[in-house]
């Protein structure tokens, strides 16, 4: 430790030391670490491709997702003109998968985004304020924990009726309690650390403390958890559609496609498995991305 460098006059010391070093910025560092992580880059590229193809569905395929042909029912993979085959009403699978990605991704991302905003708000309030308000929020969340998540989603869907919007609402309600719990735990842990007291002693207001000291330490954990929920959300929404509670036919959605192709499993097993495979790959990518994100956001781990 270079304690003898301090002996000089403060005035003369300040001058050479003033080579201004720009504040590094936490997110810049995270980005740098992410760019070094090959797996995460690869799965992120995969996800970008899936999202892009879904959005560009009308341009990547020339077929109508709803228009089938009786002559072309249940064709195998590799059929000329229908390279991924056709379903039980003769609709092109590739087209249906592309269009289906829109709804599936929507049903995967939107509930998580909603629960992220609502859940982390409630959780940070509960964790930071504590006391009666905290208890009220947490006990309310505990009520939701009494039901298994899929059952709760089914119940809410059943209550609201089927349709995409209702299944999104149902999934958001399902995801809010765990989000609140995680946000509350991390906030309460962070709040009692000395740097929060030090900030308060330095005259920082409560809002500034939450914004600069709590959020930066809590958001990482919540964000990582949220990305891991996306895969669950895709699977759950596919499950709801499969049960006939989410998206209604003839709309294209991966879960629904899996349901309708189920009957063709002995005729065209590979074609029938395609929507399931896509659900698997997409959720896997989200999971791996969340792992990579966690690694990059934890500055304590050296990469």
């Amino acid at each position: 430790m270079a304690s003898d460098t301090t002996m000089a006059q403060p005035g003369t010391l300040a001058a050479p030391a003033a080579a201004f070093i720009a504040p590094a910025g936490y997110w810049k560092l995270v980005r740098r670490r992410l760019l070094r992580d090959k797996t995460t880059l690869f799965v992120t590229a995969m996800l970008v491709a899936i999202v892009f193809i879904s959005l560009a569905a009308p341009w990547v395929t020339s077929y109508d997702p709803y228009q089938g042909s009786i002559m072309l029912r249940l064709k195998p993979i590799g059929t000329p003109g229908h390279w991924l085959g056709t379903d039980e009403t003769g609709r092109d699978i590739w087209t249906r998968l592309c269009y289906g990605g829109r709804l599936s991704l929507l049903a995967g991302v939107v509930p998580v985004a909603v629960s992220l905003v609502v859940g982390s708000f409630l959780g940070i309030v509960a964790g930071f304020v504590g006391g009666r308000i905290g208890t009220l929020i947490m006990r309310t969340m505990d009520v939701f924990y009494a039901f298994p998540s899929i059952l709760l989603a089914v119940a809410i869907c059943g209550l609201l009726g089927n349709g995409l919007t209702n299944s999104i609402i149902a999934l958001a309600v399902v995801f809010i309690p765990p989000m609140v719990r995680i946000a509350e735990t991390v906030t309460a842990q962070t709040r009692q650390l000395d740097f929060v007291e030090a900030a308060r002693a330095g005259g920082t207001s409560t809002m500034q403390i939450i914004r600069h000291h709590i959020l930066s330490n809590v958001l990482g954990t919540i964000l990582v958890y949220a990305t891991s929920l996306i895969s669950l959300s895709i699977i759950l929404s596919a499950g709801l559609s499969f049960l006939g509670l989410g998206v209604t036919p003839p709309q294209a959605e991966w879960g629904l496609m899996l349901n309708s192709l189920r009957q063709a499993i002995y005729v065209q097993p590979y074609v029938a498995a395609l929507p399931g495979l896509l659900i698997f790959v997409t959720s896997m990518c989200f999971n791996l991305m969340s792992d990579g994100l966690r690694g990059a956001m934890d500055v304590r781990l050296n990469r």
């Binding site: 504040p23 936490y26 740097f195 920082t204 330490n217 500055v299």
Partner: peptide
């Protein structure tokens, strides 16, 4: 625990004066 793990050393030191 008295230092914010997400802030660099200069960030931590400059924080309060900047807030003021």
């Amino acid at each position: 625990s008295s230092l914010n793990p997400r802030m660099t050393m200069v960030d931590s030191i400059a924080y309060a004066p900047h807030m003021h």
